[in-house]
Amino acid sequence: MRPFTYERAASPAEAAAAAARNPGARFIAGGTNLLDLMKLQIETPSHLIDVNGLALDRIEPTPEGGLRIGALVRNTDLAADARVRRDYGVLSRALLAGASGQLRNKATTAGNMLQRTRCPYFYDTSQPCNKRQPGSGCAAIGGFSRQLAVIGGSEACIATHPSDMAVAMRALDAVVETVRPDGTTRSIPIAEFHRLPGETPHVETVLEPGELITAVTLPPPAGGVQIYRKVRDRASYAFALVSVAAVVQRDGTARVALGGVAHKPWRVEAAEAEIPRGAKAVTAAMLDGAKPTHDNAFKLRLVERTLGAVLAEAKG
């Protein structure tokens, strides 16, 4: 961990401004991902802006009938919120599928959205990685890639996004709210928030330097049967091989997002028209153009079977 200076910010605008003044700055909230990476010098901020003192830890109803989740709401608190459990069960379940009780007590809503990949080559600083060191190459391609992306990857990167929460958020059409260093705010639909790796896998979201997430907003409850199903090698405390977030309506229509398959939570709205034709058809449409490796080709079949399980469960 490189030396850094540390300050506590008192307001979102002040935090964003502090970030603008310090080009090497990072915001820190839960710290569960950032400190992990700082210890390995994968993240090397020269300045930390502690945002825990910002009053962004509330969950409030929106005028439209949805929920506005403060950026600092801890994963445990979001998953346990009575409104989330009742109206956004897929989100509660996805949060609870992630990490451990200890980590969920610290990890925040914004931080979870910004989690970085668990690609083992990203984590091993002796190996080339375009995400960690742009232009150095990708050791994962041709290497051990069982956990990595089957779709949306590039010649530069086949990393996956590790979040469970974000997959549910994608199925729920959440919107990310931010404040920029100049004090202006914006709302970013989650579909546009995470980027595919392309030639610049180190640029993972559309956030600008110094831009701070202040909240994530959920639209009014979608109803239906909400399921989050995570498949992994051990029963808990592990990242997904694949996961499925689904909101299935009585009329048979559904929204489906996938985790563990791409550099971002994966949703193909057009594929959802295939729901009446079953999991195989939906999977074919969602993963059209997939380029799996030898190690992770099984994910295609696993998505299909997991989605089949979810659709069967939704039918009851």
Partner: peptide, 9 residues
């Protein structure tokens, strides 16, 4: 995290 051993569950 990468080398998984059994957990309680």
């Amino acid at each position: 995290a990468g080398y998984e051993v059994p957990v309680h569950a």
